[in-house]
Design a protein around this nucleic acid. Structure first.
Lengths: 203, 203
DNA sequence: TCCTGACTATGACGATCGTCATAACTTCAC
DNA sequence: GTGAAGTTATGACGATCGTCATAGTCAGGA
């Protein structure tokens, strides 16, 4: 098998990133947190921390899009919304509102690596690539919602906007729940989004 | 006057936090970025970086709630929504999608300070206080929207949910725009939110 | 058995970080 | 003018960081 160690590092990095953010997640902490050998970092991730973060972002993307796509295809858009919000609610509550969304962390922060950037300027290309990956994850989640809405009769333009609203508001709400240390905002937003979607479907 | 230096530091910290996040914003960079004297840090902020971040969060909160409250009171909830989204759109475009929301950064990250935390455990109380402040800013913005909706006839419970939806989705969309380096998501979400609000007001 | 390749252990390197102590510079009432 | 208080300048301290080089371990095929 392709090394269980590597997978544990990626999952651990995603978890830590969702709690502390990208820059506050050190590779030393990842191996401490996951019980993996520090010496294996440069073996499994030759491009270093940058590569670990990249893998963590797409890992987090797949972790959500898997169940989401499944539920959406078998039970429709509204069930997909409930699944999406329910997944984040679980993450928040199981971690006592410490963990959030690692993809959002990448979208909010700017990754700076002092070691490889001797000169003042941060590595432009590396940051752009991380943003591309985060954008790709968001676009993937949106695509799933979009497809479901289309299949249930919503016009293309409207479906795109609604999918954007669902993903964006959920991500924002996850952060607000973290700040409030309460799942109340998620509940409020879920109710309103269900109203919006069912009224768009009834049209 | 109570030291122009101090104000510049706070504003500069808020700007840097919105671009890089909390942990990637160093005090040395704040003084570099604002042209303020490094030696004045411990004079104006005896509690150090923690205090600077706290001040930056409430500064960012006021910067938005000022215009927002004004527009909402003179022209109503829908105008308030347009103002709120318009402010973020300006921030994003003027910075070429590098700057975002510093309050969101606090809500997404976890502030860790190696200097004052010799032992492994991060300072629990400090982090909680930052979250309280971020939560307070979000609550303040929500309160403004809530009051406007109430005044225009929306039932209390519904008004609370709608206010939460507006703030959360806008914050989430700002992050998504940063990832996409495009204002398109903000435009999509704005349109849908206007539909939701006007239909709630027409009820 | 031995060798080869994949993996792990460990410590050094240069850098930045936040904080602090100390000294110098202003400003202005007295 | 001369203190004193409010500021600013500067460098040191201990810590962590990401990376790298080197050496060690350990499978399984020849």
């Amino acid at each position: 098998m392709t090394s269980d160690t590597r997978a544990k590092m990626v999952a651990g990095a995603a978890d830590l990133m969702s709690r502390r953010g990208v820059n506050a997640t050190s590779m030393r902490e990842v191996v401490r947190h996951t019980g993996t050998p520090r010496g294996s970092i440069s073996h499994h991730f030759p491009r270093g921390k940058q590569q670990l973060i990249e893998d963590a972002v797409v890992f987090a993307g797949r972790t959500v899009s898997g169940p989401l796509e499944h539920l959406v295809q078998s039970r429709g858009a509204i069930a997909g919304l409930r699944t999406f919000i329910g997944l984040w609610r679980q993450t928040l509550e199981k971690s006592k509102f410490e963990a959030g969304c690692p993809v959002l962390a990448v979208a909010v922060e700017q990754y700076v690596n002092d070691a490889t950037e001797k000169d003042g300027a941060p590595d432009e290309a590396a940051q752009q690539h991380l943003l591309d990956l985060a954008d790709g994850v968001f676009a993937d989640w949106q695509r799933i919602m979009f497809t479901a809405l289309r299949r249930e009769g919503v016009a293309p333009v409207r479906a795109r906007r609604l999918a954007a609203l669902v993903i964006a508001s959920t991500e924002g709400t996850v952060a607000m729940c973290r700040a409030a240390r309460s799942a109340q905002p998620l509940e409020d937003v879920r109710q309103e989004l269900e109203l919006v979607l069912s009224s768009a479907l009834a049209k």
